[in-house]
Amino acid sequence: MGLLTRTREEAPCTVEVSHRFEELSAHVRLDNGAIIHPGDAVEVQGPEIMAPYGEVVREKRTAIITRASGVERMWTRMTGDLEFMELCEFSFSEEALQ
């Protein structure tokens, strides 16, 4: 990993899309054990996967992992806590907004 350069790598993956009453989700598992670090991006190749209602669809695909540069990784780690705190700045109330 370079300080200012990004690298790309391919990895086999399994995509699982669930469209059931109890679960609506999509998950990607990298089959070669690759680890995603802060700032990295993963793009799954191929057409959109649509699961009919009540079913779970699993497909083997190829993922392109774009590794963050050293500077991007450091920036993501430094600002990640701030972005998390933004998510925490909410509350639930029974009062109606006026």
Rank of each mutant, 00 (worst) to 15 (best):
A68W: 01
S69D: 03
E43F: 11
F21N: 06
E48C: 11
R8Y: 04
V44D: 07
C13E: 00
E48K: 14
M1W: 03
V42M: 14
A41W: 03
D31I: 09
C88N: 11
D81H: 13
E83F: 14
R58I: 00
M1T: 01
R73K: 11
F92G: 10
V28N: 09
K60Q: 14
E83L: 13
P38M: 04
S18K: 15
L97G: 06
T66F: 00
A51H: 07
F21I: 12
V57H: 03
T5K: 15
L87N: 14
H19T: 10
V17H: 07
P12E: 02
H37W: 11
R6D: 06
V71G: 06
L97D: 12
I36W: 04
T5D: 10
A34V: 03
T79H: 03
M78C: 11
E22N: 14
E55W: 07
E23C: 08
K60Y: 03
H27R: 15
A11P: 03
R20G: 07
E16K: 14
R6E: 08
L30H: 00
D40N: 04
L82Q: 03
L3G: 02
L82R: 03
K60G: 08
V17A: 06
E9H: 00
A68Y: 01
W75E: 10
T79P: 02
T7V: 03
F92W: 15
M1L: 05
E10N: 05
E22D: 15
T76P: 00
W75D: 04
R8Q: 12
G54Y: 01
H19S: 12
E86G: 13
R6W: 02
V28G: 11
H37F: 11
G70P: 00
E9C: 01
C88M: 14
V57F: 06
L82S: 04
R61F: 06
